[in-house]
Nucleic acid binder design. Structure first.
Lengths: 235, 235
DNA sequence: ATTTCGATCTCGTTT
DNA sequence: AAACGAGGTCGAAAT
């Protein structure tokens, strides 16, 4: 529907929400949010999308992220207020609410979506783990993985195993170049295991990723941790 | 435009891309991505958005995140191939490419966007910092902030100051409930400063956030770090 | 329902 | 251009 009155638009949106359709609008609007934080957005031309699962997205002309949004699980409501179309989405836990007030509607449309196929994605940390379990020598000659997701008081270790000499080895895997955060994570696991397995056991911590930043390299050295360069995919 | 042929749709999209308009489509499509990772998506009805800044979003009927996307800075291109409308967005650094192949187009529209107002958001970590600098006693009676963003070899400390007895205090601020990662961050700063200011100086590390998880609390105790409960906003 | 961590994270800021 | 950290992060898996 092109250039509808706000009343016409409201009727179409109400009907579409009842049918659990996906609704899109384009028009001049203000946006208010209140919940985990709070925000106000002055008038501008924006794209609005309402999904049947409760998602509410407001996009400007730039950026990958919506300028404002409401997560899945919200309830959409639409009404006329002060000659404007107000679309409000509310949820609880956490309590939050998004209200879009359209003074002019350039465009409204509704679609009946079919359920999606699931996506097949390659090149993740899980792929890196599979690669290592299949060819442990990529990490180091003689490395033997014993378990994955081994629990420690500091969280689950990606890969847990032994080196050629029988020393315990902890691997932390990252699919791409890593900074200081990953070193901290690896260090937590190593310290937790040293405490768990008693102090005399030497435990090697190895960060496995395509590359590391300078600061991360310095932190690794400081903590006596190691680095092995590997990508999720064979080249 | 409702139920156009792919040729009509292609003409509209090409024209809109030349005008740097925002384009939306709805229809049956497959999606291919290759770059930082790689993915394939089988046929389904989806919503496609092309922004003039190079952003390309493909939304299914669920979730806040697009099922597939291409970041800002990409170049859009549209053509007919095998009786289907192919919209491809490509960028370099990193090299990546998203291709949407629409076999049926239910809907196409183009909008000429006006520049957006900027958003006014409150309840951020910056708000928490302002609150503390204005009323340092909220952290602890007698606390005196000396600088913010003080540089250490491990990165910049959120707030750096002294307690009533003149001991150095490092604050790490978080706007919401925190897990183990924030404790690791605080610990890095404290250790870096202990090294910097020589070993005999006692340095207190204080995590300031609304609350902490159990694991984070245990890690704090282990490291001799402290916690103060504060939210970004006064209640 | 909460915790934890990966992500094609995105986004802004600083170096 | 790269690095670093925040985010109304989102989302999924495990507890």
């Amino acid at each position: 529907m092109q250039d509808p009155t706000v009343t016409e638009a409201a009727a179409l949106v109400s009907d579409a929400l009842d049918r659990a359709a996906l609704v899109t609008l384009f028009g001049r609007c203000t946006v208010e949010y209140e919940g985990r934080a709070a925000s106000e957005l002055a008038p501008g031309d924006r794209h609005v999308m309402l999904k049947p699962d409760g998602t509410h997205l407001v996009h400007g002309d730039e950026g990958q992220k919506p300028v404002n949004w409401q997560p899945p699980g919200s309830e959409h409501d639409c009404r006329i207020e002060d000659a404007a179309l107000v679309i409000e989405s509310v949820r609880t836990n956490p309590e939050e609410r998004l209200a879009v007030t359209l003074s002019t509607v350039v465009h409204v449309a509704a679609f009946d979506p079919t359920d999606d196929e699931s996506i097949d994605l390659v090149g993740t940390e899980a792929d890196l783990k599979r690669r290592i379990l299949k060819s442990p020598d990529l990490v180091e000659a003689g490395f033997r993985p014993l378990s994955t997701e081994r629990e420690t008081p500091a969280g689950a270790v990606d890969v847990y195993g032994e080196d050629r000499e029988g020393r315990t080895v902890v691997l932390e895997l990252k699919r791409r170049r890593v900074g200081p955060d990953a070193v901290g994570q690896l260090n937590r696991y190593v310290e937790a295991l040293e405490r768990d397995l008693h102090a005399d056991a030497e435990i090697r911590g190895v960060l496995v990723a395509p590359s590391v930043t300078e600061r991360a390299k310095a932190l690794l050295a400081e903590r006596g941790l190691e680095f092995v360069s590997l990508t999720p995919q064979a080249d």
